[in-house]
Design a protein around this nucleic acid. Structure first.
Length: 571
RNA sequence: GCCACCGUAGCUCAGCCGGUGGAGCGCCACCUUGGUAAGGUGGAGGUCGCGGGUUCGAUUCCCGCCGGUGGCUCCA
């Protein structure tokens, strides 16, 4: 008996009877034998199957069942027909049961485009002329149109810029991040954390692996289509979390709170969330098996409170994406809900569409198949016409009950709250993917690709014209660095134009060339990315940097400040 | 997971029909001390993804595996 063999007795009995008939056998011995197998089923399952098998076979045969758990010792003598010595393996075929969620996907859904005035248009009648990306998104969602064969631009960029790379030593979809990529990730994480703390969330940390057999988790797992990574702790089986829901729900199950404290927000940076996606789906940073997901949950008293928080989080998500240089229009909005929710909240839905001032994709279900009644996502459409979800918020009407999460109302009675799931930015890796894809799109339009200054790994590069000016360069560097910015010096033995070329290839926003002229004038010659060369004082440059990065987190340069001291991580 | 293509130096790639491998960039050394997108010369560097098979002989042909990419499917 191995895992997944439950309920196999009928099939096994059929096979056994068939052989017994050929041999004209009258008696059958059932002998339990735990053969060498890496995934034996638990003993109680095996005993149960054996007993059932005995009952079934008893109808036509004389059956003798040896006790379970005795040490294996037996002698078999064979004579006669070759069939008298035979080994067979009988397995359950349908161990790939479709999850509830997968089945649900296949049921009836309705697609529309909603314009800011609240009108629903049929998807195939809407005029997409001014919204080519919406058209691509709709095609992607509904029919799955695909583009030409090409390596996605962001993959080449993530490698060239030494941000991230494939790691052949790990499972597919688990990436390595070089110093610059690690820095960008950390800054995005810092930023989202800052945003949700300002929003009023409490940051927590929960385990990355959970018990398969925990009752609440078990039924929740069944609601999701993706497969999990499995982990063994001795003989015990755990799965790696695919979101931070589990830990936070279990935590709130044990917490005591009343309606006066609602809404309650808890936040965790799920690092990592694991989803064992199909291999063919893994591409660069778009789709990973291990990724970093900011995950906030909100406990709301009633639907009114849930809706009001939903809208605030919707607005927060717009603001968060904007900070990454992703403006309304750089991504497509999808809003999905049940028909019942829509009928009761038409004005609310309309207000969401009004906020983004553009048509959005609507998906409506007749029945609720998922745990949520309302959900939005912001989807980035890339250069291959593929869409990837970034920010999302959902109103969950199911899991408070499943996890027995309750609050006390005015009368002191226990009640189930609504739960909002929110990822203000979406997966951090996906944010980087979107920025790179957008930068590539810019470059095809003749715009210099770049990161927002606060995310640029190197914000200022100083290029001394000769070795003699290195001392000078160090002084300038220290001054700018002490103001909280990332500066380095290209002290390599190369021509000035060569060093500028390299700095441009790294997308550095401010390049300072330092030589005789600057030493005399006391001014800096600054090459501003995509904006020509300007002369300014050190203070002016620092003020400019302050303006560009106001309100954003800061981190130090995680690299040697002298370029000559820096290893190349790639080519 | 299925189908297709790809896998040659750290990187990007060339290598016709089987006869033990090349370029550019990078790296190292030397020369050059430069003014807004590549200064010059020389050198080191490769079990041709891994494992089998065919062959006197395989980077080259065949099979399997691993990895990447595209398509299908799918996404909390």
């Amino acid at each position: 008996m191995e895992e997944g063999d439950e309920g196999i007795e009928k099939k096994a009995a059929g096979e056994i009877e068939e052989v017994a008939k050929k041999l004209n056998a009258e008696r059958i011995v059932l002998y339990p034998y735990a053969h060498l197998s890496p995934k034996l089923a638990p003993p109680d399952v095996a005993v149960n199957v054996l007993k059932n098998l005995e009952t079934v076979l008893n109808e036509n045969y004389e059956v003798c069942r040896a006790p379970f758990g005795w040490y294996k010792s037996f002698v078999i003598s064979c004579k006669g027909h070759p069939l008298s010595e035979l080994s067979k393996e009988i397995r359950n075929e349908n161990d790939k049961e479709e999850s509830e969620a997968l089945k649900a996907e296949k049921k009836t859904t309705y697609w529309y485009i909603m314009t800011p005035d609240g009108t629903l248009h049929a998807v195939d009648e809407f005029d997409y002329r001014n919204y080519p990306n919406l058209k691509k998104f709709v095609d992607y969602e509904i029919s799955g149109t695909r583009a030409v064969k090409q390596i996605p631009p962001h993959v080449e960029l993530m490698q060239k810029l030494e941000l991230a790379d494939y790691e052949p030593g790990s499972d597919s979809g688990n990436m390595r991040y070089y110093p610059k990529g690690k820095l960008i990730k950390a800054l995005i994480e810092d930023f989202v954390e800052q945003k949700v703390l300002d929003f009023g969330a409490m940051e927590v940390e929960t385990p990355i692996m959970y018990d398969f057999n925990h009752p609440s988790l078990k039924s929740y797992l069944n609601r999701f289509p993706a497969r999990q990574y499995q982990v063994l702790s001795g003989k015990d089986k755990y799965f790696l979390r695919f979101a931070a829901c589990f830990g936070q729900f279990l935590m709130m199950h044990d917490a005591t709170f009343s309606y006066k404290q609602l809404p309650i927000h808890i936040y965790e940076l799920a690092k990592y969330a694991f989803r064992r996606e199909q291999k063919g789906e893994l591409v660069g940073l778009r789709r990973l098996r291990a990724f970093t997901m900011p995950d906030m949950h909100t406990l709301a008293m009633d639907m009114e409170q849930a809706k009001s928080d939903f809208k605030k989080q919707y607005e927060m998500a717009i603001e968060v994406l904007k900070s990454f240089g992703l403006e309304l229009g750089d991504y497509e909005v999808a809003i999905r809900f049940t028909r019942e929710f829509y009928n009761e909240n038409k004005e609310f839905i309309k207000s969401l569409v009004e906020l983004v001032k553009r048509p959005v994709l609507i998906q409506m279900w007749d029945e609720r198949f998922f745990y949520f009644v309302l959900k939005f996502e912001f989807n980035f459409v890339d250069n291959m016409d593929k869409a990837a979800a970034l920010s999302t918020v959902q109103i969950d009407v199911e899991n408070a009950r499943r996890y027995e999460i309750t609050y006390y109302d005015e009368k002191g009675d226990k009640k189930y709250p609504y739960i909002l799931h929110c990822s203000p930015s979406g997966a951090v890796e996906r944010v980087i993917y979107s920025m790179l894809e957008k930068a590539y799109r810019d470059s095809t339009k003749g715009i210099k690709p770049s990161f927002p200054v606060w995310l640029s790994p190197v914000q200022v590069r100083i290029i001394p014209v000769k070795d003699d000016f290195t001392g000078c360069a160090i002084q300038e560097m220290d001054a700018i660095k002490n103001s909280g910015f990332r500066v380095d010096i290209d002290d390599r033995d190369l021509s000035v134009s060569r060093k500028i070329r390299d700095a441009e290839k790294e997308w550095i926003p401010y390049i300072v060339v330092l030589g005789e002229k600057e030493k005399e004038s006391g001014k800096l010659t600054v090459r501003i990315r995509g904006n020509g060369v300007k002369e300014m004082s050190r203070e002016e440059l620092i003020n400019l940097l302050h303006r560009e990065t106001a309100g954003f987190p800061k981190r130090k340069l995680p690299l040697p400040t002298m370029l000559s001291m820096r290893p190349k991580f790639r080519g």
